[in-house]
Amino acid sequence: MDRDGLYQRQVIERARAPAHAGPLEGATGRGEGTNPMCGDRVRIGIWFDGDGRIGTVRHQARGCAICLASADMMAELAVGQDQGGAVTMGRSFAALLQTGQDGGVRPELMVFAPLRQHRSRIRCATLAWSALEAALTGTPAEDSKDG
């Protein structure tokens, strides 16, 4: 069925029962990523802790299993990062999927590495990270025709 291991159990479980989905009211920063080609949309809210680091991230994701699981994992991994660290984390992840170069990507994200073989689906996984960057930098997330 899933011979290249794109849909690992972890991805399906996260998509089905995300740990970090929830209301965004009261968030310090908010961002959105959309994919006009498929209608997927991820909205996120960030709450910072006293040191200016990300304390909590919640998401409201509408999309496929890859999109939902990636949003949930992003919400987990971004915690404890400052702005620069979180943006770098997202960009390294995108680079891994787009070029195959593993420039220090968190090992938890390697579950999405098989997407490298599914170019049209890469945007599904990076959408939440675009929303995070938009929330952190205050710029709208760039739409993509991928996915």
């Binding site: 069925m1 794109l6 849909y7 089905r16 080609m37 209608g39 496929c64 299993a65 996915g147």
Partner: peptide, 26 residues
């Protein structure tokens, strides 16, 4: 419980080509 894109990707892995999305009719 299964998004159309996940359906299309898994069908594709089994050699079956379908379209998934809004079909240019949003």
């Amino acid at each position: 419980d299964v998004h159309p894109h996940d359906i299309a990707t898994l069908l594709d892995r089994n050699g079956i080509a379908v379209r998934a999305g809004h079909h240019c009719a949003e």
